[in-house]
Amino acid sequence: MSAAKKFSSRLLPWALLAVVIVVAFVVGAHSAAKPSLAERTRSVADTIRCPQCTDKSMAASDAPTSVAGRAEIQRQLVAGRTPDEVRAWFAARYGQDILLTPPRRGVEGLIWMIPVIAFVVAAAVLSAAFLRWRRIGAETATDADVAVVAAALDELHTRDVSEGDGS
């Protein structure tokens, strides 16, 4: 098999996998129905803490403030505000603590970078390990290695013969 054929046969499964992933993303993105106002409201309310509760989102709480908060979210979405603008509106009144998702800026924003950094470091370490293993596998025996092995085999053979004669 020529080098080009070998290369293409190795690359083909990866190329097919990439095509499948891209097609799945495109189909998934286009076939998903546009979320309703109620779904968009709930999606935003999921990211805002209930001001009266300790560990519930506005979407999960029936506290009067959460009920009023959901109505306010819906009102603002109808008025054309984006989810980020709605969240900013609440943060401007209750503080950043009202948001259940960490901000993307400032020191707290570093938390978003940790998975990316971990992925890059892991990929680098794995790549280095694979390269090292491949290099070890590709190493060929030198003449000196061959001579050492041959001498050892000879010695073994001689010992077997002499032990066989002695029995």
């Binding site: 001001p51 009266q52 009067p64 403030t65 009023a68 908060g69 109505a71 306010e72 609440f90 009144r93 209750y94 503080g95």
Partner: peptide, 12 residues
């Protein structure tokens, strides 16, 4: 006054 409470960031 529910909306006013939200506008003023009142929790309790």
């Amino acid at each position: 006054t529910d909306t006013i409470g939200l506008d003023w960031g009142v929790a309790k």
